[in-house]
């Protein structure tokens, strides 16, 4: 067990049990790679679960984010639903964390920002060879794409950023350990990577 988690746990034994820290996570315009990297903390997930419980997250399948201490978001903002989810996270979470290149600068999805949206949709759904030619999807349940893909900080205030594509499990674990121990997460230049 990570010494920080162990410290917190032994301190807990003498005092009445503290309520667990609630964490919500989601992927907007991302690839779930950051979530996969988070899962790479492997058995430390067990130590983490003694300190936290998950609210909305792909790990729980809860669909709507309730009040939480920490919200972690991967992916940028590419459609109207992303904006809605991001704003809900900001309202519900005391500390909001942007994780990965896409959440921080738009990343791969933002590479479409140089092409007109109409051209893109036509290319993908009608003109590209080998298509069934069903036309551009127009179901009212589908969220409308935004003109451009934006990083999270252009829409809401973000408290912390964990860069990387994806950030390593070590970086994610160190960040969470700091935050849960009540320390300001340190950004050591040796652990910052944009790739």
């Amino acid at each position: 067990m990570n010494p920080i988690a162990a410290d917190l746990k032994s301190a807990d034994m003498d005092t009445p049990r503290k309520p667990k820290v609630r964490i919500a996570t989601t992927s907007l315009a991302g690839c779930f790679g950051c979530h996969m990297s988070f899962l790479d903390i492997d058995e430390r997930l067990v130590a983490l679960l003694e300190l936290v419980e998950f609210d909305r997250s792909p790990l729980t399948d809860i669909k709507v984010c309730g009040p939480c201490e920490i919200g972690i978001i991967e992916g940028g903002v590419c459609n109207a639903e992303n904006v809605h989810v991001l704003r809900t996270f900001r309202e519900q979470c005391t500390t909001l964390v942007a994780i990965g290149a896409c959440a921080i600068n738009g990343g791969l999805p933002a590479q479409r920002n140089h092409l007109p949206l109409a051209t893109l949709l036509q290319e993908v759904y009608t003109t590209r060879p080998g298509l069934a030619h069903g036309g551009i999807p127009n179901d009212p349940e589908l969220p409308l794409p935004l003109h451009k893909v934006h990083p999270l900080h252009e829409v809401v205030k973000v408290d912390y950023f964990i860069p990387g594509c994806p950030p390593s499990a070590e970086v994610i674990w160190t960040f969470l350990s700091d935050l849960l121990a009540g320390r300001a997460p340190a950004s050591d230049r040796r652990t910052i990577h944009f790739d």
Binding site: N113, Y160, R189
Partner: peptide, 11 residues
């Protein structure tokens, strides 16, 4: 120790 671009992107 820059972890975010802070400003809005010009794209």
């Amino acid at each position: 120790q820059m972890t975010s671009p802070h400003f809005d992107h010009f794209f």
